[in-house]
Amino acid sequence: MKKAIEGKFYLEAITIQESIITDRLLSFVIRKEILVVSNENFHSQNVSLNNLSKLSRVHFEDETLFNEIDEFRLSRNKCIHAMVKSFPGNPTQKVSEFQKLSRETSLIGRVLTRKVDAWHTRMKKTHNI
């Protein structure tokens, strides 16, 4: 993640961040038995970042972490999809705007990844899971 940001590979950093955040939330909801998944449906919609953050929400200390995850998720979606997608007849996003949003999202994601990881560590200790 650090090397991706330093190398200005912001989409790669964002992808790594989303993967880590999703992993920590998934680990928690499975260990806490909030979500039951099998090997066959492990990659279903149930394990999306959006769903996992909603399932974990009641275990966050306050709404701040949930809101930060949701903002990151929406910004991540803009970064991933805005590069090539626009409303028919409208131009795609300017490259400079895309780069700025991707950089900002990756920097926010780096901080958020640490927060979610620290939360996950606390939850494992608190819930003895």
Rank of each mutant, 00 (worst) to 15 (best):
T92W: 02
F28T: 04
A82M: 06
Q99P: 03
K32H: 13
K78M: 06
F42N: 02
V36G: 12
C79K: 01
Q45E: 15
K32F: 07
P91M: 03
N41L: 12
L55N: 09
N77L: 01
L65N: 09
N51A: 09
R73K: 11
H59L: 09
L55R: 14
S75P: 02
K54A: 09
F28I: 10
E61K: 15
S44R: 10
P88K: 07
S56H: 03
K32A: 02
I30P: 07
V37E: 10
I80S: 08
S56L: 07
S96A: 08
S75I: 02
F98Y: 14
L55V: 05
E63K: 06
H43R: 05
I34F: 10
V36L: 14
S38K: 06
F42G: 00
E68N: 15
Q45C: 12
A82C: 08
E40K: 12
L55M: 15
F42W: 06
S96C: 08
E68I: 03
D62G: 09
T92L: 03
S86I: 02
P88A: 09
G89K: 05
V29M: 13
E61R: 15
D70G: 00
N50V: 10
H81C: 01
C79Q: 01
V37Q: 12
I80D: 04
F42Y: 12
F66T: 09
F28G: 02
I34N: 07
V47S: 04
K32T: 08
E68W: 04
N46I: 00
E33P: 06
E40I: 14
L74V: 08
G89R: 11
K54D: 13
I69A: 00
E68P: 07
D70N: 11
V95E: 04
N90H: 10
S53L: 11
D70V: 00
Q45M: 15
A82K: 02
R57H: 14
E33K: 15
V95Q: 07
L35Y: 10
I30G: 00
V29Q: 08
N41P: 14
K85S: 00
S86T: 08
V95R: 05
N77G: 05
N46D: 15
V58T: 15
S86Q: 01
R73N: 08
E63R: 12
E33G: 11
L35Q: 13
R57A: 13
R76W: 04
Q45S: 15
V37K: 15
H59W: 14
N90E: 13
E71V: 08
H81P: 02
M83Q: 07
V58F: 08
P88S: 13
P91H: 04
E40V: 14
Q99W: 02
T64Q: 13
E63W: 05
V84C: 01
R31H: 11
V58Q: 10
P91S: 14
F98D: 02
H43M: 06
F60R: 04
N51Y: 13
S75D: 12
